[in-house]
Write a protein that binds this DNA or RNA. Structure first.
Lengths: 128, 128
DNA sequence: ACAATGCTTGCACCATGACGCAAGTAAGCA
DNA sequence: TGCTTACTTGCGTCATGGTGCAAGCATTGT
């Protein structure tokens, strides 16, 4: 098993990139950073479950951290495209961007699957 | 528009949780933390594109960080369930757990969509 | 004009984590 | 028994980021 890379690497990275879809495109760290914090995850879950726009104050009731922390997290989530903010008077409503979010998640899943289609002819038994 | 919470909150959080699927279950921060770092994202993309198990050394060639850093990242990714490690002699091969990963991503998308079915009768026009 | 409400922002603190270097471990080879 | 290869781990450093408090800003009501 010497020269492992020669024996086990039939494709160059460039060839692999051509064979697969643009996985990189959907592996956006800034998007997933939004989900990587437990507090943010609970905020997202809170708003998602409500199924409508929620004010900062309402969301703050759902978790134990400071009001200002919630405000900052929601602003971050809006910047990263997970939430959408609409202002009515002095109240800001944040709602989940369901369609865009689901599309991003499914696009990544599709791109990954394209790299290794478990039922595909080219891959079957060879890699996964 | 006084008493906003009364007017705009027809469901309690508990009722909302019952109406929706268990979004929390699929919003696992430890999973998404794996994708939240640019270096890790490029490592995942590298292995995913190859479509087979890659050794630590091979993956290290794909990015500019130290070998030890790559080793640590891959170990972390294996712990969080994104990759799977198999040892052959003194070489460790990491491969993407395509099926499990895609399932997690799609489950989250499904759970989110269940919270706000854009074409659903109960939600249409009311929330999103 | 003044006060109250809803949210944002500045500041300081502290924990986490990403990184590189160097030493350590384990497997194969001479 | 060494020596090389492939990887892991300990350690110190530095940057990022999550948190709470307090002050600031914008909007609404009196």
């Amino acid at each position: 098993m010497t020269q492992v890379s020669k024996l086990r690497r039939p494709t160059t990275p460039k060839q692999a990139a051509a064979r697969c879809g643009p996985v990189d495109k959907f592996l956006d760290p800034s998007l997933f950073k939004a989900f990587s914090d437990p507090t943010r995850a609970s905020l997202i879950a809170c708003i998602a479950k409500c199924g409508r726009g929620c004010s900062v104050g309402e969301v703050a009731e759902c978790c134990s951290v400071d009001f200002s922390v919630v405000s900052r997290h929601l602003a971050l989530l809006a910047r990263s495209g997970v939430l959408e903010a609409t202002k009515e008077g002095r109240t800001v409503f944040y709602r989940v961007r369901y369609a865009e979010l689901c599309k991003s998640l499914r696009s990544l899943a599709d791109a990954l699957e394209e790299c290794c289609p478990e039922k595909g002819a080219a891959c079957n038994g060879k890699c996964c």
